[in-house]
């Protein structure tokens, strides 16, 4: 499986420059007290990984990968692991920069709030992964982009409807006792949804013909 991870990292290495530039822009904007774009950085790492699916498709890599020992399983597993590692590394870099920016500009660091914000970002980013990857394996990158657009559009419509017509304060009040455990809950939900997504993607790939 290490070979698959090396292949993906080698393929996307040219995108690391873009990520580096974004990190620099984030740092400068942070010091200048402008807009906080920290959420973009982990999200960009998922987008970069999604581009690796396009490369694979273009090169007919998936069919070739099946000729390797445990090729189907290792191919899927490595995509998830590489993406999660990239998201975590980029998030860690962003977190350290956030602390630094906060310390330099305000002479204080709000560890708790920054951490929860970052956990929320990781959660949101990996949510994209969990929805996108099984769809990509099923439909291919191009159709998956359209599918994710429809899904997001659907969520916005349904969310808008719920906010407008249903009193959500009852739910938020009844769940208020969970506020202290928000970080932990996010971590558990993230792990669960990534695991379920991986299992679905694996099931799709194990049955797929190329």
């Amino acid at each position: 499986m290490l070979g698959f991870i090396k292949k993906d990292l080698a393929m996307i290495k040219s995108n690391f420059k873009l990520l580096g530039i974004l990190i620099i822009i984030y740092t400068i904007m942070g010091f200048l007290g402008k807009m906080d774009i920290s959420f973009i950085l982990p999200f960009m790492s998922v987008m970069i990984m999604i581009s690796s699916f396009s490369y694979d498709n273009y090169n007919n890599w998936d069919a070739y990968a099946i000729t390797f020992p445990d090729g189907r399983k290792n191919g899927v597993k490595s995509k998830y692991i590489t993406t999660i590692l990239m998201v975590l590394v980029v998030s860690l870099i962003t977190l350290i920069l956030s602390f630094l920016i906060s310390y330099v500009t305000t002479k204080s660091i709000n560890y708790g709030e920054t951490l929860v914000t970052m956990l929320g970002t990781i959660f949101g980013t990996l949510l994209v992964l969990t929805i996108m990857y099984p769809i990509i394996y099923k439909l291919g990158v191009e159709k998956a982009r359209m599918a994710i657009f429809l899904i997001v559009f659907g969520i916005v419509i349904i969310g808008g409807f719920l906010v407008q017509y249903i009193d959500l304060s009852v739910i938020t009040k009844s769940l208020a006792f969970l506020e202290n455990y928000l970080g932990l809950i996010l971590i558990i939900i993230t792990i669960l949804m990534v695991y379920i997504s991986y299992k679905i993607a694996l099931h799709i790939v194990m049955k797929k013909e190329y």
Binding site: G3, I5, K6, K7, A10, M11, N59, W61, A63, Y64
Partner: peptide, 28 residues
């Protein structure tokens, strides 16, 4: 098993040395 497929290509931005590193992590 060693395989060459007719319709398969190595990713264009890799080098033969990259292939060596990748395959080290694939075949025992």
């Amino acid at each position: 098993i060693g395989v060459v497929l007719d319709d398969m290509f190595f990713p264009e931005i890799l080098t033969p040395l990259d292939i060596d590193k990748i395959m080290r992590g694939i075949y025992k």
